[in-house]
């Protein structure tokens, strides 16, 4: 399937999802759906680095929350249309990803992961001490009831924007998989030394991956203040973002773009259901149990279990 056909199909599916949510005519569907879609973007973004190049990033909350706080800062400085704010948040987190890539050039494996976790802690400390965005006390953001131009409920608007981000993130991931860039990422993941010897500019590719991954995580986090309306550092930088975001591609499969999508839809939907039927306190227990279960039953995730993934991607490649 050509890239444009995929994009068109993805837009149609997104339109159908929005229409289905609107047909239910229940605000909660949009509130819960927003979180699920946010995790689709986060899991896809994480997979660009963690799944494709093998660099496991634990600092997801840092990228996510920094963009959310960019929104808070922009709201105070010069209120802009939300799509512009999302781009600004993506740019800030993309730059953070680029910086992280430069600072961790020589780190691999667990050392890289610890460095990313440390980066999130540093970002949180920075925000806690930045009173302009509320510091440790947090910040309130007033969510308009309706959008100015579409005249739809604002939560519908947030849902629609996150749906659009999902389409862009998935299309980007698919495009990378089928490109020379994706081949280079795979070579880095399998053996970085051999990749460099085979002519792959590993440093440049790692920086592209960290920046792209960070930018999409930022774009997922930028609308958060309008969703929660009150943002404080402990919740914005919550470790549960990292745990969920890493678990989703692992459960769905990291080899190809459908993996993070399936993992996020499955896990985040289950968490939303449990939140309303039992308690949100059970959410992390679900993640733990599912991870253990999938590591035993399907170590290559759901798509790997069904024999798709890398093979599917290969067959779809045009040379």
């Amino acid at each position: 399937m050509r890239g444009w056909t995929f994009l068109l199909l993805a837009v149609l599916v997104a339109g159908a999802v929005y229409a289905a949510a609107a047909a239910v005519n229940n605000g909660y569907v949009f509130f819960a759906g927003y979180v699920v879609l946010q995790y689709v973007v986060l899991a896809t973004a994480w997979n660009l680095l963690g799944g494709y190049t093998g660099y496991v990033n634990f600092g997801i909350a840092g990228f996510f929350a920094l963009a959310a706080y960019t929104t808070v800062a922009l709201e105070k400085l010069a209120p802009l249309p939300l799509p512009v704010v999302i781009l600004a948040g993506g740019a800030i987190s993309g730059l953070l990803g680029l910086g992280m890539g430069y600072l961790t050039l020589r780190l691999r494996g667990v050392f890289f992961s610890i460095a990313t976790l440390a980066m999130a802690v540093v970002a949180q400390t920075f925000v806690v001490n930045w009173n302009f965005v509320g510091g440790s006390a947090g910040a309130f953001v007033i969510r308009p009831q309706f959008t100015a131009w579409l005249r739809i409920d604002y939560i519908h608007y947030l849902f629609l924007l996150m749906l659009g981000l999902c389409v862009i993130a998935l299309a980007t991931a698919r495009l990378i998989e089928r490109s020379r860039l994706g081949d280079g990422f795979a070579a880095i993941r399998d053996d970085e030394l051999a990749a460099e010897a085979a002519g792959v500019p590993t440093l440049r590719l790692k920086l592209i991956a960290t920046a792209l991954s960070g930018a999409f995580m930022g774009m997922a986090g930028a609308p958060l203040p309008y969703y929660v309306t009150y943002l404080d550092p402990p919740s914005a930088f919550s470790l549960s973002y990292a745990v969920n975001t890493i678990a989703m591609p692992l459960i769905g499969g990291t080899a190809a773009w459908p993996g993070p999508l399936i993992g996020a839809l499955l896990l985040a939907t289950l968490q939303q259901l449990v939140t309303v039927t039992i308690s949100s306190a059970v959410n992390l227990l679900i993640v733990g149990l599912m991870l253990v279960g999938f590591i035993i039953i399907a170590p290559r995730g759901i798509i790997g279990w069904f024999g798709i993934g890398a093979g599917l991607v290969r067959k779809g490649k045009r040379r």
Binding site: D183, G184, A186, A187, R189, D190, D191, L193, A194, A195, A198, G199, V200, A255, A310, R314, R319
Partner: peptide, 15 residues
């Protein structure tokens, strides 16, 4: 040091 997730032909495609 082959690229283990890639096929033999894909190993040659990289360079």
């Amino acid at each position: 040091r082959p690229f283990r997730s890639l096929t033999v032909a894909e190993n040659l495609q990289i360079p």
